[in-house]
Amino acid sequence: MKITARKVIVSAIAVAGGVALLAGCAQAPSTSSGGSTTAKKSDFLPCMISDSGGFDDHSFNELGYNGLQDASKALGVKPKTAESKTDADYAPNISSMVSQNCNLIITVGFNLADATKAAAAQNPDTNFAIIDDNSITADNVQPIIFDTAQAAFLGGYAAASFSKSGVVGTFGGMQIPTVTIFMDGFADGVAYFNKQKNKDVKVVGWNVDSQKGSFTGGFDANDTAQNTAQGIIDQGADVIMPVGGPIYQSAATAIKNSGKSIALIGVDADVYNTDPSVRSILLTSVMKGIQPSVENVVKSAAAGKFSNTPYVGTLKNDGVGLAPFHDFESKVDPGLQGEIDKIKAGIIDGSITVNSPASPKS
C-alpha cells in the first residue's frame, strides 16, 4: 500500500525529486566510462572558493575541499583555493580564480550563488560548479545538489526512537533552502515515527507547516549558536540536530555544559569521523556525498565532459545517507537499524515519499 504524505497523513511526506534522479537530473559523473580521467593535460586547473565557514569547518566546506584534493591528486594537478571570511569576499575570490586561468571554479554553498552567476555570465569560457544551489541556469554552471530531506527523514525517525523525554529539536544557521530541507526531513521523520508507533514525540525549533523556527543568523560557532542550542535544551529536547556547518560545535558545548544526557545529530559529514571531540554525544549524522560528488565533477570536467545538468544526490544513488550509530549502537533500540533500513528501501522504491518545499526539482 502506498503511504501518502504530510498534508494527508503525517506518516510520510510528499515528494518530488527524491526517489530517484528526476528527468533532466544527472547521475554522478562516471569516472570509468569512455576516456581516461587521469588527464594528460597537466595544465587543467580546478579551483574552489569556500563560504564563510572556511575549509576547516568539519562540514560541507571541508568535504568539498577534500573532494577537490582527491580529484587533483588523481589528475596530477595542484588546485587553487580561496577561503571567504565574509560574503564581501565571494566576488573578489571568484575574480581572483578567473584571473589565474582556472578551468573549473567550484563555489561552496548557496550564499555564493549571486557572485557565481555574475562571474559565469562575465566569463562564458570558464566552467563553474556550485554546491547546494540550483538557481543558476547557464551553460557553464553545474549545480551539485542533494535531496537531504530523504536522509534527514531517517535521522528524525532515529531521534524520535532514541528520545526519552519525548522532545527532540533542531535549529539552523540561516533560513535558506539548503538548511530548511534538513529541518523539514527531520520533523517529518519524527512525525512518521509517531504514526508508526502511536507516539507523540514533539519537535521544537522548527515547524514544518509554518516554515518558522530557530536560526542563529550565520554559520559560525559562537555565543549566539550556543544560546540557541540552550534554548532548545530548555524546552526539554534530549536529541538536537543543528544545521549549518560549525554551529554544531556550539551545540556540543551547550550539551556538555548542561550536564544532561542529550544526544547530538551531525549534518553533511559523518561527524564521528571528522570531529572525534563530539563522539561521546553523537547519535548519528545526516550526510551529503559532497566529497565524492566534487571529485567526480572535477574528473569529468578534466576529461572534457563538463555538463550543466545538475547532479542530485539521493538515497538511491548514495548521494545522501544516514551515518552509523557508532558508539551509540548499543544504546539505541535493537530493532532501530532494521526499521531505518526498511524506511530507506521504501523511500527508494517510492512506497514512502519524502518532500520539502526545498527539495530539488528538475
Score class of each variant (00 low, 15 high):
residue 164 K to F: 01
residue 197 K to D: 01
residue 360 P to T: 06
residue 304 G to S: 08
residue 132 D to K: 01
residue 307 S to H: 13
residue 177 P to I: 07
residue 277 S to E: 09
residue 262 I to H: 02
residue 223 D to N: 13
residue 189 G to V: 05
residue 331 K to V: 03
residue 288 K to P: 00
residue 55 F to I: 03
residue 139 D to E: 15
residue 318 D to R: 08
residue 185 G to R: 02
residue 113 A to N: 10
residue 50 S to V: 11
residue 65 Y to M: 14
residue 23 A to I: 07
residue 29 P to L: 04
residue 38 T to P: 00
residue 110 F to H: 06
residue 85 K to C: 00
residue 191 A to Y: 09
residue 124 P to M: 10
residue 338 G to K: 06
residue 121 A to N: 12
residue 187 A to I: 01
residue 25 C to P: 00
residue 33 S to Y: 04
residue 122 Q to A: 15
residue 99 S to T: 12
residue 135 S to F: 01
residue 276 P to F: 00
residue 358 A to M: 03
residue 359 S to L: 12
residue 251 A to Y: 02
residue 271 V to R: 05
residue 88 A to P: 02
residue 298 V to Q: 07
residue 263 A to I: 06
residue 166 G to I: 03
residue 20 A to N: 13
residue 305 K to D: 05
residue 337 Q to E: 11
residue 286 V to T: 08
residue 23 A to L: 11
residue 200 D to M: 00
residue 189 G to Y: 02
residue 57 D to N: 01
residue 127 N to D: 14
residue 75 L to E: 12
residue 317 N to C: 07
residue 349 D to M: 04
residue 237 A to E: 09
residue 99 S to R: 08
residue 269 A to M: 01
residue 36 S to N: 14
residue 288 K to D: 00
residue 240 I to C: 05
residue 195 K to H: 10
residue 314 T to P: 07
residue 42 S to M: 04
residue 301 A to M: 08
residue 49 I to S: 15
residue 294 V to F: 07
residue 319 G to Q: 09
residue 281 I to C: 06
residue 345 A to N: 08
residue 222 N to H: 07
residue 170 T to H: 04
residue 349 D to W: 12
residue 224 T to F: 00
residue 353 T to S: 14
residue 2 K to F: 12
residue 60 F to A: 10
residue 312 V to G: 08
residue 278 V to W: 04
residue 254 A to P: 08
residue 222 N to S: 02
residue 226 Q to R: 15
residue 146 F to S: 04
residue 334 P to C: 05
residue 235 Q to R: 14
residue 155 G to E: 05
residue 109 G to D: 11
residue 175 Q to H: 13
residue 355 N to S: 15
residue 273 N to P: 00
residue 323 A to C: 06
residue 260 K to N: 08
residue 279 R to H: 08
residue 110 F to M: 01
residue 254 A to G: 07
residue 261 S to V: 09
residue 348 I to W: 08
residue 230 Q to A: 11
residue 316 K to S: 10
residue 134 N to L: 15
residue 315 L to P: 01
residue 67 G to M: 06
residue 275 D to Y: 03
residue 68 L to T: 11
residue 228 T to H: 10
residue 311 Y to C: 10
residue 186 F to A: 03
residue 76 G to K: 05
residue 259 G to Y: 09
residue 27 Q to S: 15
residue 337 Q to C: 04
residue 31 T to F: 02
residue 313 G to I: 09
residue 250 S to R: 07
residue 34 G to M: 10
residue 87 D to I: 14
residue 343 I to Q: 04
residue 10 V to Y: 09
residue 361 K to Y: 14
residue 177 P to C: 11
residue 228 T to Q: 07
residue 80 K to P: 00
residue 220 D to R: 01
residue 5 A to K: 10
residue 79 P to K: 09
residue 134 N to R: 14
residue 13 I to W: 12
residue 360 P to N: 03
residue 107 T to Q: 07
residue 286 V to N: 00
residue 329 E to C: 01
